[in-house]
Nucleic acid binder design. Structure first.
Lengths: 184, 184
DNA sequence: ATAGAATGTCACAAATATGAGACATTTCAC
DNA sequence: GTGAAATGTCTCATATTTGTGACATTCTAT
């Protein structure tokens, strides 16, 4: 028997990423499950959302950590972590979106924000290193690059959804646009 | 007396861009107006949404058209139109988002889709020209570039909302990331 | 084949969102 | 200042969303 809880979370990430206030029925449909079943696994919308964030952070942190450890070279690390980010897909962009809503005040005091920052600690640290070393165009800021990274992931996801571009092709294009776009 | 209808539309674009199913109360708040007033101008959510799309298409089409006509040089046109796109801000990205939702089937038969395509006709035509001329990296596709363009606009908007970067600075960064990212 | 777990179906109450009427208050042009 | 237009306040009916109980059905391991 497949893991219903997990598939609901995946569905929720997909739906909420596009429509934050979408009715839970949409999530249930996407997960091919009844709304009643959804409620058996999640007390309410808040709990579902929290579980989504937790899952996203877990998946992204693991992927980033593994990518980080494939090499010691900062330049190679950048590329490995970039691809890891692509593979996290909408998990990546959804989390980022939540923390860049116009009425969201990002603050380290908040637990969710602090966890978010921690998820991308290695990634941002490596970026900073490449910046000070001059590998990346000096006019850039870590924040700009991080946002830019997230946006390229979105372009990648998009191309995959439309299916006009093969996965390998799209990955290459994404890396090209990202690396050149930050001046490597 | 300021144009209430217009300011509600602007507010709606801002809110819906982040949360498609946000309650109308949020839109009213953003527009600093009562929900009752909002309903005096717009019969219902659908009418508001339609007016938003119309306004967006109008603004984007005008901006793109003007930028297009500032020069005859395709390379310069690209840059002018890129900045025009930046200036359209969330109008640009919201329209794009609506036409890339995972359950949205884009088809020229649909009136809204056809109008959307028309809004970016000049822009995409110019892109195609630069592609065949080899100014842009040959591995690129017009669709990828267009999506990439939209995503860079998002990064720009984001940086402006956070206010960590001046407008002029952010514009420069955006153009750098975009132009290099497509291989110019 | 059967027990037990998981899920679906139906029904329902509560909460929230929507749209509009009636009238008070504010704003603006003059 | 005055009157008309615009907006706000309060209220209400309706529609939609949400969360849950009761029970039927389906699936799964043995």
């Amino acid at each position: 028997m497949k893991d219903t809880e997990q598939s609901i979370i995946e569905a929720a990430i997909l739906i909420f990423n596009e429509d934050l206030s979408a009715p839970l029925e949409k999530v249930a449909d996407q997960a091919q499950v009844t709304r009643r079943t959804l409620h058996r696994y999640f007390k309410d919308r808040k709990e579902l959302m929290d579980k989504c964030q937790k899952e996203i952070r877990r998946a992204c942190a693991v992927a980033m950590f593994n990518a980080y450890n494939t090499t010691e070279n900062p330049r190679e690390r950048l590329e490995a972590m970039f691809y890891a980010g692509l593979d996290c897909g909408s998990k990546n962009t959804f989390l980022h979106k939540l923390h860049t809503l116009h009425d969201h005040k990002h603050q380290t005091a908040d637990e969710a924000c602090s966890k978010y920052d921690h998820t991308f600690e290695l990634w941002k640290g490596n970026l900073q290193l490449l910046l000070t070393e001059g590998v990346i165009n000096q006019g850039m800021t870590v924040d700009w690059i991080h946002n830019f990274f997230q946006s390229v992931v979105m372009v990648f996801i998009n191309s995959q959804q439309k299916g006009t571009l093969g996965r390998a092709e799209a990955r290459e294009l994404a890396w090209f646009s990202f690396s050149k776009g930050i001046g490597i």
